[in-house]
Computed example of a mutant assay.
Amino acid sequence: MNYLAHFHLAAVVARQGGYDDEALLVGALLGDYIKGPLRGDWPAEWEVGIRLHRRIDALTDGHPLVSECLAGFPSEFRRYGGIALDVCFDHFLLDRWSDHALDNAPTAAQFAGECYRVLGAKREHFPVAAQRQLAFLTEHNVLCILRDWTMAAQMLARISRRLKRQNPLRDCAAVLDAQRPAIARCFDQLYPRLLEQLPQEFAH
């Protein structure tokens, strides 16, 4: 899952599990930047959010629905297909936002704005790499721009330039278009399962 899905799932778990919304949101961002065992070096509920981020990644990466979807990609894309799915899943979350809206029913734009506000207020406590990524997310409104399907390929082209190895993500638009129905089916089956399972696993 990409940033919007991680933040949305963190909000759902926080509200159903009695956690602090802002703390789990921070953990949802830091999950990409804090590695290794968690031993209390960060605020306790930040670490819950980091664990949640890791659990989301594990459930998604290892899910049979994801494996089945990736099998439909051309062979040269499969190594990087997980990255492509993460980005595309945010598109489908935006496209189906009203189906998964939180109890107070904010729009996706309102939710994104709150994420930027909360994380921006705490950014000085983040690792430098997380600060840079937050600045990028905010400047380019990454949480909302993927509503436009064509932005998925553009986002992956940007990611392609950051990867050390040669990869096919720079020219993935045609592949994504061909796989779009399969990716949509995967999201529509997988995301509700995460929404049901994760609050149970992280209940106080």
Rank of each mutant, 00 (worst) to 15 (best):
E124P: 01
E114K: 02
L119G: 06
Q110A: 15
R117S: 10
P106Q: 11
L134Y: 09
V128Y: 13
L137T: 06
H140T: 15
Q133T: 11
C115A: 14
E114G: 00
Q133I: 00
R117H: 12
D103E: 14
I145N: 02
A108T: 07
A105T: 13
D103A: 15
T107G: 10
A130E: 09
K122F: 04
L119W: 05
Q133C: 00
Q110L: 05
I145W: 08
N141Q: 15
C115L: 03
F126C: 08
L137A: 04
H140G: 00
A130Y: 07
K122T: 07
F136P: 02
F126A: 06
Q131P: 03
V118K: 01
K122D: 08
L143P: 04
A109F: 01
T107M: 03
E114V: 00
V118P: 00
Q110N: 05
K122C: 05
I145P: 01
V142K: 03
R123L: 12
V142I: 09
A121K: 13
G120Q: 09
A129N: 13
C144I: 14
A135V: 10
E114A: 05
D103C: 01
T107N: 02
V128H: 11
I145K: 06
I145S: 02
L119A: 06
A112R: 02
L137Y: 08
G113P: 00
V128L: 14
G120M: 09
T138N: 08
G120Y: 05
